[in-house]
Write a protein that binds this DNA or RNA. Structure first.
Length: 584
RNA sequence: GCACCCGUAGCUCAGUUGGAUAGAGCGCUGGCCUCCGAAGCCAGAGGUCACAGGUUCGAAUCCUGUCGGGUGCGCCA
């Protein structure tokens, strides 16, 4: 049971009663009513603004309405005290019993504690990573990969039916460049001295294997033949090898997509032509001339007619071109077809995870989705800002040209997948993030991953120690579930319980806001509360978890310790990070 | 020039979609190990939420404007 949702529905019942009694008029919206923990705990356990929200439309004074509602709340099960404060807040104190029972609730559900029905099984497509298949992944890709993956898990926990998707950009000039780069390696493989890799081609060593493979398979038959003859073959082989490379890199991070969708297939199947003709039918495309951007006219600007989509109709700043000067489709045109394809596969809700450099692209694609789906498709874009890679506070300089950019594989090898995954979520996704390769390995308060893991490990440590200190007391979940949780009545214990009981609510708010970074922030709070409680036992022996001459009390406290470990583990699981049982 | 993001403690950042006296870490000052893991904890100092208006019972949050910073701006992906 989510305590806050429970009392929200009690409050909604009271609104109904008051409506029947004629105090409130029918049809008032309850959407702006909050039922949440107050910022300051002296105000109670739950605070609601219901009287202030409904008083206006009912032309009542908030304090009068609050009195009516408060009277009825006093009779509700589990509420020990109701008070009216400030401009009309209603503050509720909840009986200790209700909180204490949350411990049993957590032990009962285990890692699934926090699962909610918010999404109601709604299908949702989350597209993330979508790196060009032209080489291995570098650290810059890691943030979007982690955010997309954890957002997926978060929404799954919140009751959505998530499909994780990867859009393969295997069309366009960059894959031709890849093919030519592979061709060079092919010639090298056949004994030719290719010298320096020319500017504009991919210099990476990883293409040597592709050259080798083509030699093994086809011998020297492409030597000296025209580019048009070998290019498609090299392109196909190279892109599929690069895609394999990327999938291996993703696997290192524990990421697996269910669907890979190729851009090239959209071209091959005339999907783009089809979408554009649908837009034509709606009079949403035309031939026209765009003005150059003011204050920044590019040197090579050439005024000419273009084939444009009327994205301004849907709130974009200018209309957007669908064709390049050579007559082929733009990336945008393909993307329109791709998103309509997603919609027609049953996803009216889509989330794309992009890098910050694509921010300017949001409006046009949302416009396109709205246009092609007649407003039935909904595209949300989650923007990931840059990652500054540091070592001991010093920036690590990367340059693609020199080929010394840090690959994702390097970083995972150095610090491990869990450190990468956790650290990528320690800032809100729109904010730039410093990622220090040394700091994530530190065992100190500075390192949030350590701090959270340490709390989990300490909890496990207490449970292990029980065997020595209190032999015969079993600590498996089904035994702890029977503990007398009413014995947990120290203020610090109750604070921790209330925090743990907020996990389902956190899932709901984080899922609604689509902000996975709230999970590590929350886990940090849980860890702090747990470390604090632990240290109280150092100052006051009667507050230790294990009291050798009081089995019942020990058992109750162990239930709390186990519950804390479960909530931390539950959060780490959503993040794809493995909870540690010990730190040594 | 236009669009989007940002401006919160000395530093790095949260802030529950509009709630009550704005929070955390680092750093600084002082305290806590005969004791379940001190790799930790507790306490203190530190603020005109960039600025000015507006919306309302109520604004760090929403609107307008100003200042300052970042990113992007036809045909690349």
């Amino acid at each position: 049971m989510n305590v806050f949702n429970h009392y929200r529905s009690e409050i909604e019942d009271i609104i109904k009663e008051l409506t029947e009694e004629g105090v409130l008029q029918p049809g008032l919206s309850v959407s702006r009513i909050s039922v949440e923990p107050p910022r300051d705990p002296v105000h109670g356990d739950i605070s609601t603004n219901v009287a202030m929200v409904l008083a206006g439309p009912a032309s009542l004074k908030p304090s009068d309405l609050a009195k009516d509602i408060a009277e009825k709340l006093e009779n509700v099960d589990g509420i020990s005290k109701v008070s009216i404060a400030g401009p009309g807040f209603i503050n509720l104190h909840i009986e200790l019993k209700i909180w204490q029972e949350q411990i049993s609730e957590i032990l009962f559900h285990g890692l699934r504690y926090g699962d909610t029905e918010l999404g109601g099984g709604q299908e949702i497509n989350i597209e993330y990573v979508s790196a060009n298949p032209t080489g291995p992944m570098h650290v810059g890709h890691a943030r979007g990969a982690v955010i997309g993956d954890v957002l997926s898990s978060l929404l799954e926990k919140a009751g959505f039916n998530v499909t994780r998707e990867f859009y393969v950009n295997d069309a366009g000039v960059q894959v031709d460049v890849l093919a030519r780069s592979a061709y060079l390696r092919y010639r090298q493989c056949l004994g030719e001295d290719i010298g320096e890799i020319p500017d504009g081609l991919y210099p990476g060593e990883y293409l040597v294997a592709v050259g080798n493979e083509i030699v093994d398979e086809h011998g020297d038959i492409f030597l000296g033949s025209a580019e048009a003859d070998w290019l498609p073959i090299f392109r196909d082989i190279a892109t599929s090898r690069m895609l394999e490379l990327i999938r291996e890199d993703l696997a290192l991070l524990g990421i697996q997509h269910q669907v890979f969708r190729s851009e090239q297939t959209l071209h091959d199947h005339d999907s783009i032509t089809q979408v554009v003709s649908e837009l034509e039918d709606r009079d949403l495309v035309y031939w026209g001339v765009l003005e150059p951007p003011k204050g920044q006219t590019p040197d090579d600007w050439e005024q000419r007619e273009q084939y444009l989509f009327r994205s301004t109709v849907f709130g974009d700043d200018i209309d957007r071109p669908l064709k390049k000067s050579d007559g082929t489709w733009t990336y945008f045109a393909a993307d329109i077809a791709y998103h309509l394809d997603k919609f027609r596969r049953g996803f009216s809700e889509m989330i794309d995870v992009w890098g910050a450099d694509h921010k300017g692209y949001i409006k046009r694609l949302q416009a396109a989705v709205e246009a092609t789906t007649d407003g039935n498709g909904l595209l949300d874009v989650c923007i990931c800002n840059l990652v500054n890679l540091l070592e001991n506070g010093e920036p690590i300089r990367m340059s693609k040209r020199a080929g010394n950019f840090v690959t994702l594989r390097d970083v995972v090898d150095q610090v491990g997948k869990d450190a990468v995954r956790f650290m990528m979520l320690t800032r809100s996704n729109e904010a730039p993030l410093d990622f220090d390769l040394k700091q994530v390995l530190e065992q100190s308060r500075d390192n949030p991953l350590f701090y959270v893991q340490y709390a989990h490990a300490r909890a496990c440590s207490v449970l292990r120690n029980t065997e020595i200190k209190l032999p015969g007391l079993s600590v498996d979940d089904s035994s702890l579930k029977k503990a007398d949780v009413a014995l947990l009545n120290d203020a610090a214990e109750l604070d921790l319980i209330k925090l743990l009981a907020g996990w389902p609510r956190l899932i709901e708010t984080a899922a609604t806001a689509r902000e996975p970074h709230r999970i590590p922030f929350y886990l940090n709070e849980v860890a702090a509360a747990f470390h604090g409680l632990w240290n109280k036992g150092n100052e006051n022996l009667s507050l230790r978890f294990l009291i050798t001459d009081n089995t019942e009390l020990s058992k109750a406290r162990l239930a709390l310790v186990r519950a804390a470990a479960l909530v931390i583990a539950s959060g780490l699981t959503v993040m794809g990070v493995e909870p540690l049982r010990e730190m040594r």
